[in-house]
Protein backbone atom coordinates (compact mmCIF):
# COMPACT_ATOMS: atom_id res chain seq x y z
CA UNK A 1 0.00 0.00 0.00
CA UNK A 2 1.50 3.27 -1.08
CA UNK A 3 1.32 6.12 1.30
CA UNK A 4 0.14 8.58 -1.27
CA UNK A 5 -3.54 9.21 -1.26
CA UNK A 6 -4.64 7.83 -4.51
CA UNK A 7 -7.75 9.10 -6.14
CA UNK A 8 -9.46 5.78 -6.28
CA UNK A 9 -7.68 4.55 -9.36
CA UNK A 10 -7.17 0.87 -9.04
CA UNK A 11 -4.62 0.68 -11.78
CA UNK A 12 -1.01 1.06 -12.57
CA UNK A 13 -1.31 4.54 -13.94
CA UNK A 14 -1.51 5.70 -10.39
CA UNK A 15 2.23 5.32 -10.08
CA UNK A 16 2.66 7.98 -12.68
CA UNK A 17 0.36 10.18 -10.79
CA UNK A 18 2.16 9.87 -7.53
CA UNK A 19 4.01 13.06 -8.36
CA UNK A 20 0.73 14.91 -8.15
CA UNK A 21 -0.15 13.31 -4.86
CA UNK A 22 0.07 16.44 -2.83
CA UNK A 23 -2.07 18.32 -5.25
CA UNK A 24 -4.71 15.71 -5.11
CA UNK A 25 -4.45 15.38 -1.39
CA UNK A 26 -5.39 19.01 -1.23
CA UNK A 27 -8.47 18.15 -3.13
CA UNK A 28 -9.49 15.78 -0.33
CA UNK A 29 -8.98 12.71 -2.36
CA UNK A 30 -11.47 13.81 -4.90
CA UNK A 31 -10.22 14.06 -8.38
CA UNK A 32 -11.58 17.05 -10.09
CA UNK A 33 -11.55 17.73 -13.76
CA UNK A 34 -8.78 19.93 -14.98
CA UNK A 35 -11.12 22.65 -16.15
CA UNK A 36 -10.73 25.48 -13.74
CA UNK A 37 -14.38 26.42 -13.72
CA UNK A 38 -15.77 22.97 -13.47
CA UNK A 39 -18.39 22.78 -10.84
CA UNK A 40 -19.34 19.16 -11.29
CA UNK A 41 -17.11 16.65 -9.69
CA UNK A 42 -16.27 13.65 -11.82
CA UNK A 43 -14.60 10.52 -10.65
CA UNK A 44 -12.34 8.16 -12.49
CA UNK A 45 -14.06 4.85 -13.12
CA UNK A 46 -12.67 2.87 -16.09
CA UNK A 47 -9.15 2.87 -17.46
CA UNK A 48 -8.28 2.56 -21.14
CA UNK A 49 -7.86 -1.18 -20.99
CA UNK A 50 -11.33 -1.65 -19.53
CA UNK A 51 -12.86 0.65 -22.08
CA UNK A 52 -11.13 -1.24 -24.85
CA UNK A 53 -12.39 -4.53 -23.45
CA UNK A 54 -15.90 -3.15 -23.37
CA UNK A 55 -15.59 -1.96 -26.94
CA UNK A 56 -14.44 -5.39 -28.08
CA UNK A 57 -17.29 -6.99 -26.20
CA UNK A 58 -19.76 -4.48 -27.57
CA UNK A 59 -18.70 -5.11 -31.15
CA UNK A 60 -18.44 -8.88 -30.93
CA UNK A 61 -21.64 -9.25 -28.95
CA UNK A 62 -23.60 -7.08 -31.35
CA UNK A 63 -22.28 -8.85 -34.40
CA UNK A 64 -22.83 -12.25 -32.82
CA UNK A 65 -26.41 -11.33 -31.93
CA UNK A 66 -27.22 -9.86 -35.31
CA UNK A 67 -25.75 -12.84 -37.13
CA UNK A 68 -26.83 -15.43 -34.58
CA UNK A 69 -30.47 -14.69 -33.92
CA UNK A 70 -31.58 -15.07 -37.54
CA UNK A 71 -29.79 -18.42 -37.52
CA UNK A 72 -31.87 -19.40 -34.52
CA UNK A 73 -35.07 -18.29 -36.23
CA UNK A 74 -34.43 -19.00 -39.94
CA UNK A 75 -38.13 -19.56 -40.59
CA UNK A 76 -39.17 -16.11 -39.51
CA UNK A 77 -39.59 -13.33 -42.03
CA UNK A 78 -37.14 -11.15 -40.19
CA UNK A 79 -34.65 -13.97 -39.84
CA UNK A 80 -34.76 -14.65 -43.56
CA UNK A 81 -34.56 -10.95 -44.33
CA UNK A 82 -31.53 -10.46 -42.12
CA UNK A 83 -29.77 -13.51 -43.54
CA UNK A 84 -30.40 -12.32 -47.07
CA UNK A 85 -29.19 -8.83 -46.20
CA UNK A 86 -25.97 -10.24 -44.79
CA UNK A 87 -25.22 -12.16 -47.96
CA UNK A 88 -26.87 -15.48 -47.24
CA UNK A 89 -26.55 -18.10 -44.55
CA UNK A 90 -22.99 -19.14 -45.37
CA UNK A 91 -21.72 -15.56 -45.31
CA UNK A 92 -23.61 -14.97 -42.07
CA UNK A 93 -21.84 -17.97 -40.59
CA UNK A 94 -18.48 -16.61 -41.64
CA UNK A 95 -19.25 -13.26 -40.00
CA UNK A 96 -20.55 -15.04 -36.91
CA UNK A 97 -17.40 -17.12 -36.66
CA UNK A 98 -15.21 -14.04 -37.11
CA UNK A 99 -17.01 -12.21 -34.31
CA UNK A 100 -16.70 -15.33 -32.18
CA UNK A 101 -12.95 -15.26 -32.64
CA UNK A 102 -12.93 -11.64 -31.54
CA UNK A 103 -14.99 -12.52 -28.47
CA UNK A 104 -12.67 -15.40 -27.59
CA UNK A 105 -9.63 -13.20 -28.05
CA UNK A 106 -11.23 -10.53 -25.87
CA UNK A 107 -11.99 -13.18 -23.25
CA UNK A 108 -8.39 -14.38 -23.23
CA UNK A 109 -7.23 -10.81 -22.94
CA UNK A 110 -9.61 -10.22 -20.05
CA UNK A 111 -8.26 -13.26 -18.22
CA UNK A 112 -4.69 -12.02 -18.61
CA UNK A 113 -5.61 -8.45 -17.68
CA UNK A 114 -7.45 -9.78 -14.66
CA UNK A 115 -4.39 -11.75 -13.61
CA UNK A 116 -2.32 -8.62 -13.93
CA UNK A 117 -4.77 -6.58 -11.91
CA UNK A 118 -5.14 -9.10 -9.14
CA UNK A 119 -1.65 -10.56 -8.91
CA UNK A 120 0.75 -7.88 -10.13
CA UNK A 121 -1.17 -4.91 -8.81
CA UNK A 122 -2.86 -6.69 -5.94
CA UNK A 123 -5.90 -4.59 -6.75
CA UNK A 124 -9.00 -5.35 -4.71
CA UNK A 125 -11.28 -7.91 -6.39
CA UNK A 126 -14.15 -5.49 -6.59
CA UNK A 127 -16.21 -7.76 -8.86
CA UNK A 128 -16.39 -10.64 -6.39
CA UNK A 129 -19.95 -11.16 -5.25
CA UNK A 130 -20.60 -11.38 -1.53
CA UNK A 131 -23.26 -11.47 1.12
CA UNK A 132 -23.25 -7.71 1.06
CA UNK A 133 -24.61 -7.76 -2.49
CA UNK A 134 -27.62 -9.81 -1.42
CA UNK A 135 -28.27 -7.33 1.35
CA UNK A 136 -27.89 -4.45 -1.12
CA UNK A 137 -30.36 -6.07 -3.51
CA UNK A 138 -32.90 -6.61 -0.77
CA UNK A 139 -32.31 -3.09 0.53
CA UNK A 140 -32.82 -1.68 -2.97
CA UNK A 141 -36.13 -3.48 -3.33
CA UNK A 142 -37.17 -2.38 0.18
CA UNK A 143 -36.35 1.19 -0.71
CA UNK A 144 -38.18 0.95 -4.02
CA UNK A 145 -41.28 -0.32 -2.29
CA UNK A 146 -41.07 2.30 0.41
CA UNK A 147 -40.01 0.02 3.23
CA UNK A 148 -36.77 1.92 3.64
CA UNK A 149 -36.07 5.61 3.76
CA UNK A 150 -32.77 5.57 1.87
CA UNK A 151 -31.29 3.39 -0.83
CA UNK A 152 -28.27 1.29 0.14
CA UNK A 153 -24.79 2.69 -0.31
CA UNK A 154 -22.98 0.39 -2.71
CA UNK A 155 -19.36 -0.32 -3.58
CA UNK A 156 -17.25 0.10 -6.71
CA UNK A 157 -19.36 -2.47 -8.48
CA UNK A 158 -22.93 -2.67 -7.23
CA UNK A 159 -25.00 -5.86 -7.22
CA UNK A 160 -26.62 -5.07 -10.56
CA UNK A 161 -23.25 -4.69 -12.26
CA UNK A 162 -21.96 -7.87 -10.65
CA UNK A 163 -25.00 -9.77 -11.91
CA UNK A 164 -24.28 -8.51 -15.35
CA UNK A 165 -20.56 -9.21 -15.21
CA UNK A 166 -21.02 -12.76 -14.02
CA UNK A 167 -23.81 -13.28 -16.50
CA UNK A 168 -21.39 -12.30 -19.24
CA UNK A 169 -18.78 -14.68 -17.82
CA UNK A 170 -21.30 -17.51 -17.59
CA UNK A 171 -22.75 -16.74 -20.98
CA UNK A 172 -19.38 -16.47 -22.69
CA UNK A 173 -18.21 -19.76 -21.21
CA UNK A 174 -21.40 -21.49 -22.37
CA UNK A 175 -21.34 -19.86 -25.79
CA UNK A 176 -17.67 -20.55 -26.40
CA UNK A 177 -17.93 -24.17 -25.30
CA UNK A 178 -21.12 -24.95 -27.18
CA UNK A 179 -19.98 -22.89 -30.13
CA UNK A 180 -16.80 -24.91 -30.19
CA UNK A 181 -18.83 -28.12 -30.28
CA UNK A 182 -20.90 -26.82 -33.19
CA UNK A 183 -17.81 -25.67 -35.01
CA UNK A 184 -15.96 -28.95 -34.49
CA UNK A 185 -18.58 -31.68 -34.24
CA UNK A 186 -16.31 -34.38 -35.60
CA UNK A 187 -13.48 -33.63 -33.20
CA UNK A 188 -15.84 -33.34 -30.24
CA UNK A 189 -17.65 -36.60 -30.93
CA UNK A 190 -14.34 -38.43 -30.91
CA UNK A 191 -14.39 -37.89 -27.14
CA UNK A 192 -17.96 -37.02 -26.22
CA UNK A 193 -21.32 -38.61 -26.99
CA UNK A 194 -22.86 -37.50 -30.26
CA UNK A 195 -25.86 -36.06 -28.54
CA UNK A 196 -23.66 -33.28 -27.19
CA UNK A 197 -23.83 -31.70 -30.62
CA UNK A 198 -27.59 -31.12 -30.80
CA UNK A 199 -27.58 -30.39 -27.06
CA UNK A 200 -24.93 -27.74 -27.68
CA UNK A 201 -27.03 -26.31 -30.44
CA UNK A 202 -29.98 -26.09 -28.06
CA UNK A 203 -27.84 -24.52 -25.35
CA UNK A 204 -26.16 -22.12 -27.77
CA UNK A 205 -29.56 -20.91 -28.94
CA UNK A 206 -31.07 -20.75 -25.46
CA UNK A 207 -28.12 -18.96 -23.97
CA UNK A 208 -28.02 -16.54 -26.88
CA UNK A 209 -31.63 -15.63 -26.36
CA UNK A 210 -31.03 -15.19 -22.64
CA UNK A 211 -28.01 -12.99 -23.30
CA UNK A 212 -29.74 -10.77 -25.82
CA UNK A 213 -32.82 -10.40 -23.62
CA UNK A 214 -30.63 -9.60 -20.62
CA UNK A 215 -28.77 -6.90 -22.51
CA UNK A 216 -32.00 -5.43 -23.81
CA UNK A 217 -33.63 -5.39 -20.38
CA UNK A 218 -31.04 -5.18 -17.61
CA UNK A 219 -28.17 -3.48 -19.38
CA UNK A 220 -30.19 -1.05 -21.45
CA UNK A 221 -32.39 -0.07 -18.53
CA UNK A 222 -29.59 0.46 -16.08
CA UNK A 223 -27.10 2.32 -18.23
CA UNK A 224 -29.22 3.81 -20.99
CA UNK A 225 -32.69 4.47 -19.70
CA UNK A 226 -32.34 5.04 -16.03
CA UNK A 227 -29.37 7.29 -16.66
CA UNK A 228 -27.45 7.62 -19.82
CA UNK A 229 -24.23 6.44 -18.26
CA UNK A 230 -21.27 7.24 -20.51
CA UNK A 231 -18.59 6.23 -18.07
CA UNK A 232 -17.53 3.10 -19.99
CA UNK A 233 -16.71 5.34 -22.95
CA UNK A 234 -15.34 8.41 -21.18
CA UNK A 235 -13.80 6.59 -18.24
CA UNK A 236 -15.28 9.08 -15.78
CA UNK A 237 -18.46 9.13 -13.76
CA UNK A 238 -20.38 12.08 -12.40
CA UNK A 239 -20.64 12.79 -8.72
CA UNK A 240 -24.43 12.37 -8.75
CA UNK A 241 -24.20 8.92 -10.27
CA UNK A 242 -21.35 8.04 -7.93
CA UNK A 243 -23.52 8.99 -5.03
CA UNK A 244 -26.53 7.11 -6.27
CA UNK A 245 -24.91 3.93 -7.50
CA UNK A 246 -21.64 3.69 -5.63
CA UNK A 247 -22.30 5.51 -2.39
CA UNK A 248 -20.09 3.36 -0.25
CA UNK A 249 -17.17 3.75 -2.66
CA UNK A 250 -17.67 7.51 -2.54
CA UNK A 251 -17.61 7.42 1.24
CA UNK A 252 -14.46 5.36 1.16
CA UNK A 253 -12.85 7.80 -1.22
CA UNK A 254 -13.81 10.71 0.94
CA UNK A 255 -12.74 8.97 4.12
CA UNK A 256 -9.60 7.79 2.39
CA UNK A 257 -10.33 4.26 3.52
CA UNK A 258 -10.51 2.84 0.10
CA UNK A 259 -8.43 -0.28 -0.43
CA UNK A 260 -5.53 0.55 -2.69
CA UNK A 261 -3.63 -1.60 -5.13
CA UNK A 262 -0.11 -2.60 -4.30
CA UNK A 263 1.84 -3.02 -7.52
CA UNK A 264 5.17 -4.73 -7.56
CA UNK A 265 7.78 -4.35 -10.25
CA UNK A 266 9.19 -7.80 -9.48
CA UNK A 267 5.82 -9.50 -10.01
CA UNK A 268 5.30 -7.42 -13.10
CA UNK A 269 8.62 -8.58 -14.56
CA UNK A 270 7.60 -12.16 -13.95
CA UNK A 271 3.99 -11.83 -15.10
CA UNK A 272 4.23 -9.90 -18.36
CA UNK A 273 6.43 -12.38 -20.29
CA UNK A 274 4.55 -15.37 -18.96
CA UNK A 275 1.18 -13.81 -19.71
CA UNK A 276 2.35 -12.86 -23.19
CA UNK A 277 3.44 -16.42 -23.93
CA UNK A 278 0.33 -17.94 -22.39
CA UNK A 279 -1.86 -15.52 -24.28
CA UNK A 280 -0.20 -16.27 -27.57
CA UNK A 281 -0.39 -19.98 -26.88
CA UNK A 282 -4.09 -19.68 -26.14
CA UNK A 283 -4.66 -17.74 -29.33
CA UNK A 284 -2.68 -20.34 -31.25
CA UNK A 285 -4.80 -23.08 -29.69
CA UNK A 286 -7.93 -21.24 -30.72
CA UNK A 287 -6.62 -20.89 -34.24
CA UNK A 288 -5.65 -24.55 -34.35
CA UNK A 289 -9.03 -25.79 -33.24
CA UNK A 290 -11.00 -23.44 -35.38
CA UNK A 291 -9.23 -24.61 -38.48
CA UNK A 292 -8.79 -28.21 -37.38
CA UNK A 293 -11.86 -29.68 -38.96
CA UNK A 294 -11.93 -29.96 -42.66
CA UNK A 295 -14.61 -32.35 -43.59
CA UNK A 296 -17.38 -30.69 -41.66
CA UNK A 297 -17.21 -27.76 -44.01
CA UNK A 298 -15.58 -28.82 -47.25
CA UNK A 299 -17.28 -30.74 -49.98
CA UNK A 300 -16.45 -34.31 -50.70
CA UNK A 301 -16.42 -34.78 -54.47
CA UNK A 302 -19.50 -36.33 -55.89
CA UNK A 303 -19.47 -39.80 -57.29
CA UNK A 304 -20.07 -40.25 -60.95
CA UNK A 305 -22.94 -42.48 -61.87
CA UNK A 306 -23.29 -44.01 -65.30
CA UNK A 307 -26.53 -42.64 -66.60
CA UNK A 308 -26.96 -44.12 -70.02
CA UNK A 309 -26.90 -47.88 -69.68
CA UNK A 310 -29.34 -49.33 -72.19
CA UNK A 311 -31.10 -52.46 -71.14
CA UNK A 312 -29.99 -55.43 -73.16
CA UNK A 313 -32.09 -55.51 -76.27
CA UNK A 314 -34.22 -58.56 -76.72
CA UNK A 315 -34.13 -60.01 -80.18
CA UNK A 316 -37.10 -59.00 -82.22
CA UNK A 317 -38.79 -62.11 -83.57
Amino acid sequence: MTSSSDAGRPDVQNAKRQADAAKRAAKKGIEEEAEPHATRKRYHRFDRIQRLEHAALLISFTVLSVTGLPQKYPDSWWGKGMLAAMGGIEMTRVIHHSAAVLLIAASIFHLLALGYRLWVQRAPATMMPGWRDVQDAIATLSYDFGKRKLPPLMGHYNFGEKIEYWAVIWGTVIMVLTGFVLWNPILVTKYLPGQFVPASKAAHGGEALLAVLSIITWHFYNVHLKHFNRSIFTGRISGELMEEEHGRELEEIEDNTRKQPNPSTRRRTIYVPIATVVGLLMLATVYFFLTYEDTAITTVPRQDVEIYVPAEATETP
Binding site: I186, T189, P193, G194, Q195, F196, V197, T295, T299
Partner: peptide, 19 residues
Protein backbone atom coordinates in the same frame (compact mmCIF):
# COMPACT_ATOMS: atom_id res chain seq x y z
CA UNK B 1 -19.25 -36.43 -46.49
CA UNK B 2 -17.37 -36.51 -43.20
CA UNK B 3 -14.60 -39.08 -43.71
CA UNK B 4 -13.05 -38.34 -40.32
CA UNK B 5 -16.25 -38.98 -38.39
CA UNK B 6 -15.93 -41.27 -35.39
CA UNK B 7 -18.29 -43.78 -33.83
CA UNK B 8 -20.20 -41.21 -31.83
CA UNK B 9 -20.69 -38.83 -34.70
CA UNK B 10 -23.94 -40.27 -36.10
CA UNK B 11 -25.65 -39.51 -32.79
CA UNK B 12 -25.04 -35.85 -33.46
CA UNK B 13 -27.98 -36.22 -35.82
CA UNK B 14 -31.29 -36.49 -34.00
CA UNK B 15 -32.67 -39.08 -36.41
CA UNK B 16 -35.80 -37.07 -37.16
CA UNK B 17 -36.91 -37.43 -33.52
CA UNK B 18 -38.18 -34.49 -31.53
CA UNK B 19 -36.25 -34.23 -28.25
Amino acid sequence: CHPDAGDNFPDAWMSHFEP
